[in-house]
């Protein structure tokens, strides 16, 4: 069970959170101009790298805020967190 430092509430256990996918994820547009493959790319394709990744988490049972976590998918080490609206945290290799 991870211990995730919420930028608002401090470190909390993982069951309090919801995982929200990698960022940045930009929705293609305008809708009329989007090709099927670009749409599929947006819907289904993720980098899913081994190593550090920026992702969104939602503190469901706490402050109910989305925020950004830099997490290592191989070791689960959490390198940084930041509130939405703040600049995206750097990934330090």
């Amino acid at each position: 069970m991870l211990r995730i430092p919420c930028p608002w509430c401090g470190p909390r256990d993982e069951p309090e959170f919801r995982w929200g996918g990698e960022v940045p994820l930009v929705r293609p547009g305008p809708p009329q101009a989007v090709t099927e493959s670009a749409w599929a790319e947006y819907l289904f394709m993720r980098d899913n790298p081994k190593g550090l990744v920026r992702e969104r988490w939602l503190h469901t049972l706490g402050c109910r805020q989305w925020f950004i976590v830099v997490r290592n998918t191989a070791t689960h080490e959490i390198q940084a967190t930041s509130a939405l609206g703040d600049p995206l945290p750097e990934i330090r290799p």
């Binding site: 509430c9 909390r12 069951p15 309090e16 049972l61 706490g62 402050c63």
Partner: peptide, 10 residues
Amino acid sequence: VARTAIADVH
């Protein structure tokens, strides 16, 4: 003050 889960409830 904290919002969390106690005894499995919010």
